[in-house]
Amino acid sequence: MRGIILGAAAVVVTGLYLHNASWPADPDNEFAVLAHRGVHQTYPSEGLTRDACTATRIHPPTHAFIENTLPSMREAFRLGADVVEIDIHPTTDGEFAVFHDWTLDCRTNGQGVTREQTMAYLKTLDAGYGYTADGGRTYPLRGTGVGAIPTLAEVLEAFPDRRFQINIKSNDPSETDRLAAYFLARPHLRAERVSFFGGDRPIRRLREVEPRLAAASKGQMKACLKDYMLTGWTGHVPESCQGTVLMAPEGIRTILWGWPDRFLERMQRAGTEVWAVGGIKRQVQSVEGIDTPEAVARLPRCWRGGVQTDRIEVVAEALAEHRRRLADCR
């Protein structure tokens, strides 16, 4: 009897392994690089809080690019980005401003809540005004970002054949309706080349209004990862993982059923984009990018999904080498 039980268990384990083995899978995804905030000024994350003014704690600058500006995006694409992540806020005159912070006081010479301003006012500000690496003794970018806050239309028109991930900064579902109207009035912007990330409420509303568009929220990503870990061994992709965008943190990637190729193939069939990211920054509930050549080297050798980075200027060559190596994986 014991032998029968052990034999049956061996059959089950073997079947489970083969059903979730990565090596037989052959996803036909195209490798892609997402540059979070384009080429931007970085800062240490130690002791960081959600309300911290990151412009006042940047590393000593190695370049003059300012996040969410056209030169920053152009440089990211030049360095090999396939997608650039940008942040948006509605303005009081019907535009969407491409800018990160909820308020203007940290990065610019303006004041007030970003979405309570006109785009005309935002255009008068210096987007590089508040950046300092030495506690305020010097401001190396001051004066370089005057008029540099662009509208969403200006970004998409400047790069008509490029892809963007748009971060909706509020948790207001009505903002989704404003976005839908914005794209409807400007069909030349081609909404299908953007994906969206934001709070649960606006993303839920976006999926109701435009289910064809790729969209994800932090809550949905967490639900997808949890649900897949519980049921992915069956090969079934849960509803929470259907038609969305998923970030796969380095610390949990290897315990995802079928990682890497079988997992990627399943998500591809479900219409979901997968981006490999670094560690989880729990203090601010966000993730790190793949930001060093060593982190790129830890990717699966034939990884054909996406990679998100905060330091494309640092890892551009390593990512280009990974892309070249994929030719030998077919």
Rank of each mutant, 00 (worst) to 15 (best):
K218Q: 14
I168T: 08
V155M: 07
M221S: 10
P260V: 02
H322D: 00
A10K: 11
T69G: 05
V209L: 13
T118M: 05
P293G: 05
W257E: 02
Q41D: 02
A133T: 04
D261L: 08
R107F: 10
W102G: 09
S217V: 08
V277A: 09
P60G: 09
W257M: 02
P60T: 14
P173F: 08
S45F: 13
V307D: 01
I4H: 15
D134N: 11
Y17T: 12
W102C: 11
E192A: 15
R186A: 05
R2E: 14
A191N: 05
H36V: 01
K123Q: 04
D177T: 12
R282F: 14
E321S: 14
C53Y: 03
A25Q: 06
V146Q: 03
G136H: 10
H59C: 11
K169H: 03
R301K: 14
P173C: 03
T132R: 06
Y228Q: 04
Q242T: 09
L141W: 08
T124G: 09
P44D: 05
V315R: 00
L230W: 12
A55G: 08
P24A: 04
E288R: 09
A318Y: 08
L122Y: 07
A180K: 12
V12G: 11
R115F: 12
I58Q: 03
Y139G: 01
A10M: 13
I58P: 04
V274S: 02
P150K: 05
V83K: 00
R178G: 07
Y43A: 01
A180S: 13
D101Y: 10
D328I: 07
W102P: 05
R204T: 15
D93H: 08
G130I: 08
T151M: 05
R325N: 14
L225G: 02
M119G: 03
E321C: 12
D310V: 07
V11K: 10
S22H: 06
A120K: 15
L319I: 00
L34A: 13
R266I: 10
V287Q: 04
E321R: 15
D82L: 01
E30D: 13
E192L: 12
R304S: 13
V296Y: 01
T14L: 14
V315E: 00
I252L: 14
A8W: 13
K226A: 14
G306H: 02
D161S: 11
K169V: 01
G251M: 13
L156W: 02
E321L: 15
A64Y: 03
G235P: 03
Y121W: 11
V237E: 00
T54S: 09
R193I: 08
V13T: 13
P150M: 09
E67S: 06
V98G: 02
N167A: 11
E294F: 08
H236M: 15
A297Y: 11
E210R: 15
G232W: 04
L18I: 08
S170D: 11
N68R: 09
F31I: 06
R301H: 10
D161G: 12
A276Q: 10
Y182P: 04
V274K: 02
A120C: 08
T108I: 07
P202Y: 05
V287C: 07
P140A: 06
D177L: 12
T54V: 13
Y139M: 09
V284G: 09
I290F: 00
D93E: 07
L264V: 01
V315F: 00
A318V: 06
I255Q: 14
